[in-house]
């Protein structure tokens, strides 16, 4: 369901409690104020597309969710777990949050299958057999099972990114974060990755995607969030956002994006 700008933070029954809650989050890189009073809550099953000009803090925002970045002030809660800097909360959150990077970041010395089984074995303690069964299921799902025994360098960019998606899915996360998953790809490979993401969305995965693929946003996003200068300036369902962006920065940003596509 598309939702509009306002959102409140509360903790009712677990099932309909938001999966991710960020309250008044502030992030600094040295003297640079990278996130300014960010408030965001993501419902279970919700698909969010995060966009905005370069340097606006999109990556920073999603990297705070799995504690790849630490925040200066504010609160982040994922599936009821309040992220403090304790190992326990970080572990709990990371095991529920999958992340896909712009540069894939597959482990080059491991086969596709080993990439997918490592974390379930080491983090969840499942057996090799169980981890491989899960891995094969998800590799099947991203239609790359036939390459399970190859090394990442033997695959195309699009294939590598699909493996990276499968690797994250093998931990059976509750939410998937995507940081510009298609922007390092040759144009002809963008579609195969977007198709994978669309099918994931159809299956009900909660997703927070930093992307400038506006077609993807229209197709799957429940909410498009526009950021600039470390702030969330606008959020709306894709139709309203693309038709009538209200903030001037959003308007000029959309103008540029559309001119390039």
């Amino acid at each position: 369901m598309p939702s509009t700008a306002t959102h409140t933070v509360d903790a009712p029954h677990a099932a309909d409690a938001p999966l991710i809650v960020m309250e008044d989050v502030n992030k600094w890189y040295g003297a640079y104020h990278a996130l300014r009073d960010v408030n965001l809550s993501v419902r279970r099953g919700e698909k969010i597309v995060l966009c905005g000009p370069s340097g606006s803090g999109k990556s920073t925002l999603i990297r705070c969710i799995n504690h790849l970045e630490t925040i200066k002030s504010g609160r982040i809660t994922v599936d009821g777990v309040r992220l403090d800097d304790s190992t326990r909360s970080v572990d709990a959150v990371r095991s529920e949050v999958g992340m896909v990077f712009q540069n894939f970041n597959l482990f080059p010395h491991m086969t596709v299958l080993q990439n997918c089984t490592l974390a379930p074995m080491r983090v969840r303690g499942v057996t090799v057999a169980a981890a491989e069964a899960t891995a094969k299921r998800f590799l099947e799902r991203v239609r790359i099972a036939e390459h399970a025994h190859k090394y990442p360098a033997q695959l195309s960019g699009g294939q590598q990114q699909r493996v990276a998606i499968a690797r994250a899915l093998c931990m059976e996360p509750k939410v998937m974060l995507f940081d510009e998953p298609t922007s390092a790809l040759d144009p002809e490979m963008v579609k195969e990755v977007l198709d994978t993401m669309v099918s994931l969305a159809r299956d009900g995965m909660t997703m927070v995607c930093v992307t400038h693929e506006m077609g993807f946003a229209r197709q799957v996003a429940d909410r498009v969030i526009f950021m600039a200068d470390g702030q969330i300036l606008e959020q709306a369902d894709p139709e309203s956002f693309f038709r009538h962006p209200t903030h001037p920065r959003a308007r000029s940003f959309l103008g540029e994006i559309l001119a390039h596509h």
């Binding site: 799995n66 790849l68 990371r94 949050v97 992340m99 482990f107 490592l118 974390a119 931990m171």
Partner: peptide
């Protein structure tokens, strides 16, 4: 090593030793 290798490992929840 590329920073992404450390980040991907951390994002997967892998502890220091593994």
């Amino acid at each position: 090593l590329p920073k992404g290798q450390f980040e991907a490992a951390r994002a997967l929840g892998l502890h220091y030793v593994p």
